[in-house]
Structures are given as structure tokens and as C-alpha cells.
Computed example of a mutant assay.
Amino acid sequence: MRSVVSALAVILSLLLTGVAVPMAWTNQNVVREDGFVALTAPLGKDQAFQSRLAAAAVGSLESKVDLPGPAEQVGASLFKNAATSMTTWPEYPQAWSDTVRQSHRLNFGGAAVAGQANASTSLVLDVGPLTALVAKRLASTTGIPVTPPDSVPINIGGPTQRQQVDSVAAYAPLWWVPALGAVLLFALALLLARRRGAVVLFAGLGLAALAGLWEALSTIAKGAGDAGLGGTAAGALFVKQLMAAAVSDFSSWIATAAVAGGVLAVLGVLILILTPKARRPAR
């Protein structure tokens, strides 16, 4: 009975680990603002994606600005330049970081931002900071005050995706609950086991198998991103690039889990070899 309970405890511990690790990664890199900014940093260097965002930001401002005759030609030239080379401006990296932070707050801010940029019903990428950058350049060049719009949302997901994000924001921070359960169950398995080396070996092999499962699921998730889920061309490209960045980042966690599983498996074998079997009492 002790062996059966010990085996069940290891299995349950592995199942909880399979849930806790992705939850912890999601909380650190998606739900937390600083983690999300770091995760999306490579997107700021993707020229194709950034060119689409620049065009969207310029188009939004250009349609709302009415310059007087003498400044109209200067403004048109600046808009054209911004749409093609804004990513080379020295202020651009900070504007992109502000864009990511503002978008994160809209999508994960909950009731505090509900109703802003349709945040309560959809997912958006708010390129308002990029538009503000163009407006600042335009005002500096023409000497005419330009007031940019507060928000320039680009749709990257509908109500279904919004509900999924709300669920992630609510449950990912609770990753420690299954993690604690996994640790306690593993400790129980070791306590009850007749041969602790077998428990450690089984746990190591199971963790390595989990790493393989996570790798397969990551590939499926990346395929979903490649299919394009955004509501606009720029939104679809953002989702695709974000998913690729997420899969790449999570792969380091998968590698760590695989190595840890291998170490546990080797340790379990060593324990089995070095620990003498208990002798049955003579009848």
C-alpha cells in the first residue's frame, strides 16, 4: 500500500508541475508589465512589423491634422519620412517601450481601464506613443502646436481572446498553489517509498517527459500565432511575432526542466545502486 500511495503521489506531483511551470512563466513574462516589455523588446527591432506600426501611427495623425498652406508641404514631407524611417529616430525605442506598456495596461488593467480603447471587449495594441512622437517632430519642424490623439488602438483580438486574457490575468499569479502541491506530494512520495531511489528516478523521467510535452504544445501555439489572429494586418503580425518570442523564451525553461529531469534520473539510479535492498525478516 505504501508503494502504491507513493507512486500516485509522484504522478500527481508531476501533473501539478505540468500546470505550475507554464503558469509561472506566463505570470512572469505576460501578466507582469516589466516581463511583457522584456518579452516584446525584440519586436522593436523587426523592421517589417515596425514599419506597419509607423504607417498606422502616421496615418492616424495625418487624418486629424489640418496644417496651414505654408506648412502643409513640410508636414507632408515629414509624414512620408516618418512612415518609412521613424524606426531610426533616436526617440523611437522609448516610444516603442511606452507603446508596449500602455497596451499592456489596457489589456491587463481590468476595471481601471475598462472602456478605454474598447479594452473591455477586445485586445488592442495602442500606438498612441508613436503618434505622439510624430506629433512632437511635426510641431518642432513647423512651429505649429499639434495635439495627438490620446489613444490609437490597433485590434489584435476579439471578445473571445479578451476573455482568455482575463482568465490568464486572474489565474497565472496563483502558480504557487500547484507548485506547492507538487513539492508536498513529492515529499510525501519520498516519505512513504520503500526505495527512494525509484521515486527520484521516476520523478526525473516524468519531468523529462513533461519537457517534451511542453515543447510539443509550444510548437502548436506557435502555429496558432502563424495563422494570424489579429483583427488587422499589423495586429496579426504582432500576434505572430509575440507568439514566436514567447515560444523562444519558454524554450529556456523547457531546457532547464529537461536537464533537471536528467539529473534526477541519474541521481535516482545512483541511489538505487548505492542503497542496499532491505532484507526480508526470516520466518
Rank of each mutant, 00 (worst) to 15 (best):
M1D: 12
M1L: 14
M1P: 10
S3V: 13
S3R: 12
S6C: 10
L8P: 00
L8I: 14
V10Y: 09
I11C: 10
L14F: 10
L15Q: 12
L15I: 14
L16A: 12
V21H: 07
M23L: 15
A24T: 04
A24F: 10
T26I: 14
Q28W: 10
N29P: 03
V31H: 02
R32E: 15
G35Y: 10
F36K: 05
V37M: 13
A41V: 04
A41K: 11
L43H: 07
G44C: 13
K45E: 15
D46L: 01
S51W: 01
S51M: 11
A55I: 11
G59K: 02
S60D: 13
D66W: 06
L67T: 11
L67N: 01
L67D: 01
G69V: 13
E72F: 13
V74D: 04
A76L: 06
A76P: 03
S77M: 07
S77N: 11
K80G: 14
M86E: 00
P90C: 00
A95T: 05
T99H: 00
Q102W: 03
Q102C: 03
H104F: 02
R105D: 04
V113F: 15
V113A: 11
A114Y: 00
A119T: 08
A119D: 01
D126E: 01
D126P: 07
L130P: 00
L133R: 01
A135H: 09
K136C: 08
S140K: 15
T142S: 10
I144F: 04
P145T: 04
P145D: 11
P149S: 05
I156C: 01
I156S: 01
G157Q: 02
P159S: 08
Q164I: 13
A170V: 01
L174Y: 15
W175Q: 00
W176I: 12
V177A: 14
A179F: 05
L180A: 15
G181H: 00
V183Y: 01
V183D: 02
A187P: 10
A187S: 12
A189E: 02
L190H: 14
A193R: 06
A198S: 09
A198Q: 13
G206E: 07
L207M: 15
A208P: 10
A209W: 07
A211E: 03
G212F: 08
W214K: 01
E215S: 10
L217V: 14
G223H: 03
G225K: 03
D226S: 15
G228D: 05
G228M: 10
L229R: 06
T232W: 07
T232F: 05
A233D: 13
A234V: 04
L237G: 00
F238M: 11
M243S: 14
F250M: 07
F250G: 02
F250L: 06
S251I: 08
I254W: 07
A255G: 15
A257Q: 04
V259K: 04
G262H: 05
V266I: 11
V269Y: 08
L270P: 00
L270A: 11
L272V: 14
L274P: 02
T275D: 08
K277V: 11
A278M: 11
R279Q: 12
R280K: 13
A282D: 12
A282P: 00
R283Y: 06
R283V: 05
